[in-house]
Design a protein around this nucleic acid. Structure first.
Lengths: 217, 217
DNA sequence: ATTATCTATAGATCTATAGATAATGC
DNA sequence: ATTATCTATAGATCTATAGATAATGC
């Protein structure tokens, strides 16, 4: 059970002894995710969470020492999911024999599908990140790790790239991939800036763009 | 003096009658921009702003009916600057005789330079946007307007584009331009995720990428 | 005479705790 | 006997106002 530096003993979560308690804890976390993603952390009071979870304020404090502990617990859930996702999705074995364009295509599909599954999660993450500098750097490190894994996959396929500076091209292409996917998902979430791109169209144009930029054979 | 729908009489700003008052009002707005951009709106109390501006809490309330009025006043400053910027930067006359790639190059330089001038402004805007849905849609509309102006410039130059669907290419390229520039500036602000791209390098690769994607002659 | 500023504080809201009651499972 | 839950509330923090004082400029 590895504990990151930002999950200190200062913010514990009670370990449940009864089924009833475990279920309540889960309900509280789900309620927090829902409300945080909708209104942000600060605009959500413990009373709101208790109400949504169907328990009392005291009940929340039985399970989580304070609001910060609850926030960190939810954060850990999200962080662990991201790590699991990237370890599966970016393992070199998974992409054995694949071309760069296949990897891009596959990752886009995976990212969009993963977002469909838990549409609140991304927004909840963003809201929680706002709370503390330490959390921000934790996710910055995580993104860096993911970028590095992706770099490895692309570097193994350097001979496909005709861009004059392949290393720079890989770095820029990955930034582009992350920024564009992020922007697309954010637009999906808000649904107000509908730029009209449907999912399949977005995937097509992303592939075309990255392929053209790197100059893939 | 055009008033957008989100600046109603409900949130007034006192019109100053004395030089002294005008200066204080400006100092309060500057203090708010600084503190909002650093800690966010909710983590900044009126007392914090008063202290930073060198006046009292009552002083702040003399100039702005409530915190919301102050926030909206700052918002209007930022919004007006954006409109002025886009009207100058995106006017068809400015780019008479220019190629698409020249426009991209010029706009990137302008955007980066504008950010250098007021490095807090972008972050302050983001923090203020978080406060109200109405403000978010206001800026969504503004971005839409800017995207439309840019679309006009590109559409006039459709014959440069060899992408099979020029209209789609223009739309996607503009999204890409906005998302990547946004991401680059955000990275400049936080300074922690230093992906190592310096300004000149970023501009070069952006031009290469958009040019390759649209298939510019 | 009007405008601008200050100090002190009422009122609202939220977090976190204390102390009591109910449910679980050895 | 322990774990889980509830209700009621103390304590902290912040917004906004009231009422007094100081500065400005006609």
């Amino acid at each position: 059970m590895s504990k990151s530096h930002w999950i200190s003993d200062l913010h514990w979560v009670r370990s449940t002894q009864q089924q009833r308690g475990h279920k309540t804890q889960t309900r509280i976390l789900e309620a927090a995710e829902k409300l945080f993603s909708k209104r942000g952390v600060q605009d959500t009071s413990i009373a709101d969470i208790a109400k949504e979870a169907g328990c009392s304020v005291g009940g929340v404090y039985h399970h989580f020492r304070d609001k910060r502990a609850l926030t960190h617990a939810l954060l850990k859930l999200i962080s662990d999911q991201m790590i699991a996702f990237s370890d599966i999705a970016l393992s070199p074995e998974r992409w054995k024999g694949a071309k760069i364009i296949d990897i891009i295509d596959g990752l886009l599909e995976l990212s969009l599908a993963s977002h469909e599954e838990m549409p609140l999660r991304k927004q909840a993450k963003i809201e929680i990140m706002r709370e503390e500098k330490e959390i921000q750097s934790h996710f910055a490190e995580l993104n860096q790790k993911i970028a590095t894994q992706l770099t490895v996959l692309f570097k193994e396929r350097t001979e496909e790239i005709t861009h004059p500076k392949p290393a720079l091209a890989i770095q820029f292409a990955i930034n582009q991939f992350q920024a564009m996917t992020e922007a697309y998902l954010m637009q999906e979430i808000s649904e107000q800036t509908n730029t009209g791109c449907v999912s399949a169209e977005f995937v097509e144009e992303m592939k075309r763009s990255l392929s053209a930029y790197m100059g893939l054979k």
